[in-house]
Design a protein around this nucleic acid. Structure first.
Lengths: 221, 221
DNA sequence: ATGTCAAATAATATCGATATTTTTGGAGAT
DNA sequence: ATCTCCAAAAATATCGATATTATTTGACAT
């Protein structure tokens, strides 16, 4: 009955709740890169036991958001320009593969999903930045998920998350909106709906390279 | 003092020991795909506590060798022809990227490492299959690691392991030796030493495709 | 016989406590 | 003053026990 007397009964398991919360905190920079993650400290922050915290940290290790130093605990993964550039490189490579495969499998149901996700993203952009982030990721993943390649999708999702972390760290997570992102998304969507693989991948990669250059320039601080 | 009274004092932490052992058992098929991994059962097998076992299983989840079913424990990752083909596809893609980057960074130290690893692999092929496996992986990773792209290397290593799992499952881990693997390795090595990226990647991918076809044909059981 | 529901069983998830290990801080020697 | 080494403190890793949750078993009604 201990697990139920906190604010609400929203999460199923304490581990999963801790995982979600810690992930959020690392992605947004609330837990800064390189910071030591002491079990006791987090135990207090999430008011749960040591076991769920430990297990959540273990899971975050898979996502490369947390580093485990044998016998010396955990810490938030460090960041570097090098690391950022590798993420960008891999995303371009893997997402191109995934998008082309998605288009090769194109069918009406997928196109419907795309249009829907795109619509939701537009709507969410008027709400908070947090809602937009979720919808934005959903749109991008929808572009790729018709590839039916679960491993590849997993990698793309991981790299996506690692990338938005840099966005948050560089600019509080919203300044990139200044550019005309909406138009870029439209280009990608239209090309995908027309099954034009070359054009779609070109727009997608340009989309990433542009944000990449912007962030890279900001990173010499 | 409980952790020290087993056979020897070989491993640093109980978690890491359990991780290594479980990984081995899943890769070799000793723990068959899809098998339920009960904590109690494993606790007995590894004679350690429940916490290290749980944590080891969490870590293996990152490697995609174990699946976590929320609130319902863990099980060895299932296998399928589909999954195998995806692994092959991704390996060809990612290793080509890594190998080209490695060659682009080529220097004498790297060439020395390659030659050495290749030599060790040849020597190890006379020993047990287990030694050869290790040396074989070391050689292949040495081909890639001069890319200086840690994320990419991590993915390649993961996919390598997933792949050898299929090899063990299909043929007990040694029948693939019948083909003239030594010659294939030599082609790759020579091309890499000559910095011929196109040739090296071609030989590498052929190497994988060939084992892939062999395993794929064996998999309709 | 078969399907459904409830009690019994088994397994997981979590907690609190303990043993190890790492880190810190300070006393003594050079 | 600075360095080394040892003791105190803190943090991690691990254990054993308990509370929760899933699964099985068997009785009852159809």
């Amino acid at each position: 009955m201990d697990a139920m007397l906190d604010t609400e009964g929203k999460e199923t398991s304490a581990t999963h709740g801790a995982y979600r919360r810690l992930r959020e905190m690392i992605l947004t920079g609330e837990l800064p890169p390189g910071q030591k993650l002491k079990i006791e400290q987090l135990r207090g922050l999430l008011n749960t036991g040591a076991s769920p915290v430990r297990e959540a940290l273990s899971l975050l290790t898979s996502d490369m958001l947390v580093e485990r130093i044998d016998q010396r605990g955990f810490r938030a993964a460090p960041v570097s320009k090098c690391n950022f550039e590798e993420i960008l490189l891999l995303r371009c490579n893997l997402e191109e593969t995934a998008l082309r495969a998605s288009i090769a499998n194109a069918d009406a149901a997928w196109e419907d999903r795309l249009v829907l996700r795109h619509h939701h993203m537009k709507k969410a952009s008027q709400n908070g930045a947090h809602d937009f982030e979720d919808a934005h990721k959903a749109f991008h993943m929808a572009l790729l998920d018709n590839s039916k390649l679960p491993l590849l999708l997993r990698y793309c999702s991981q790299l996506y998350d690692l990338n938005i972390r840099y966005r948050y760290l560089a600019a509080g997570g919203s300044s990139y909106k200044k550019r005309d992102i909406a138009a870029e998304h439209h280009h990608i969507l239209d090309a995908a709906l027309d099954h034009e693989a070359d054009s779609a991948t070109k727009h997608l990669i340009d989309h990433y390279r542009r944000t990449g250059e912007y962030l890279s320039s900001q990173m010499d601080s």
